[in-house]
Design a binder for these strands. Sequence first.
RNA 1: GCCCUCGUAGUUCAACGGAUAGAAUAAAAGUUUCCUAAACUUUAGAUCUAGGUUCGAUUCCUAGCGAGGGUACCA
Length: 454
Amino acid sequence: MGYSVAEIIKASGKKVYKTQIINDRGIHICKSMLAWEKYGQGETPQSTGLKGDKLVGNYYVKFDQEYKKEIAQLVAKGKDIEDAKKTAPILLEAKKMLLKWEAGDEATVTLWKTMNQWVYKGFDESYAALGVNFDTNYYESNTYLLGKEVVAQGLEKGIFYKKEDGSVWIDLTDEGLDEKIVLRADGTAVYMTQDIGTAIQRIKDFPDIRGLVYTVGNEQDYHFKVLFLILKKMGYDWAKNLHHLSYGMVDLPEGKMKSREGTVVDADDLMMEMTTTAGDISQELGKLDGYSDKEKSKLYKTIGLGALKYFILKVDPKKRILFDPRESIDFNGNTGPFIQYTYARIQSILRKANFDTKHDVVTSILHPKEKELIKLLQNYPTVIQNAADNLSPALIANYTYELVKGYNSFYQSVPIFGADNENDKDTRVQISYMVGNVIKSSFLLLGIKVPDRM
RNA sequence: GCCCUCGUAGUUCAACGGAUAGAAUAAAAGUUUCCUAAACUUUAGAUCUAGGUUCGAUUCCUAGCGAGGGUACCA
């Protein structure tokens, strides 16, 4: 989604830096590290054959399970539940570990580096498979200190205030919001602290940036509202150009996905599954004579990924997406493969027509379907602009779908090679060529490839 | 409790306050001596409820009902 929005904004004529913010430090990381130390018995991605991010994620889940067990035990002993949540031994240990990490403890930092490397390697594999890339990476382990610094400045300026226990807060009740913590009592940074630091660092590194777009799920609406307000109050003039592109989360039929509880659909598995389905359908149809196995598997990937990406990008980003893993994503109807198929048919025509795209066509009387298509083609630049203004890949997807539907209808009812005269034929091939170009271009904006055959 | 989203055919999605609310899918029927039938054509089916603003409301406002999220010294 972020990738697509970046491409769309670029296409609208702006310069974009695609940035990934990696939250590589904090209590959540310590939780995984601690669980691995306690229960991991030296497991590594090599020893288990698991992707690194998957392995570390498993220990994040493991921590949560143990944590919940301890809470239950404490409650059974008569402790108050809120109290139990705060005093569970494993949580205290994680907190201690975070302190050690911020103090630069060698063993902790070494373990941290090792486990992070596993995660990054796993991420890289997934991004490569998805066809997504970034211009720059920000590691919050590098920016949280700046965040703490800024909090100290803000404290002096009176934007923040200190409570008795030493924790630092901002009071936003005047803005209709609540109080929000920006630094823990033990002096360690929270999520907000790092985000403050990261934002400022990004502007420092790229002074030509006019604004930032955060592509983050809508469960964090409140967080970003507060973050932007803090930055405004700190007096940064770029703070007025901050956007939270808040997308609806993907829901499973049984509810929200939670990485902490391990109730997630693995992106890698999903990509694999889609590719397999694409292959099954393709083999059934059997239109790929002359393609090598290598070409075929590449094509299946293009189709499978296309179906997956289109499924996500075609709906308004703000909406929640309901995804039932038991019902696989469609390949017919308003789908990626439907559009890819049309593109492939157009390429087939162009191959057979042997057409010089540069030469002018003399048009006589246009068929109504042709007129419609030409009108649609003319809208393309406006649609891009609109999609950029609204940060909405869905507008591109819907437009492309409409164009393709129009083309298929035209293809069905108007003969191309069987046209009455050369002029008509040329016109129709030319239109096909242009439609093909727009499909390719718009799908590029969605990060989806188009096949020459399928 | 407080705050924020959302509520449209059986289902998944469209519709910058404008005409007869569009698609897909599922259901029913049809199209292949012709350029790829992963296609095309046709039929049936929907704006949560009650008020209000407006010449005009799916869209804006109020209330209710329903769903989800947030409000953590988690991220």
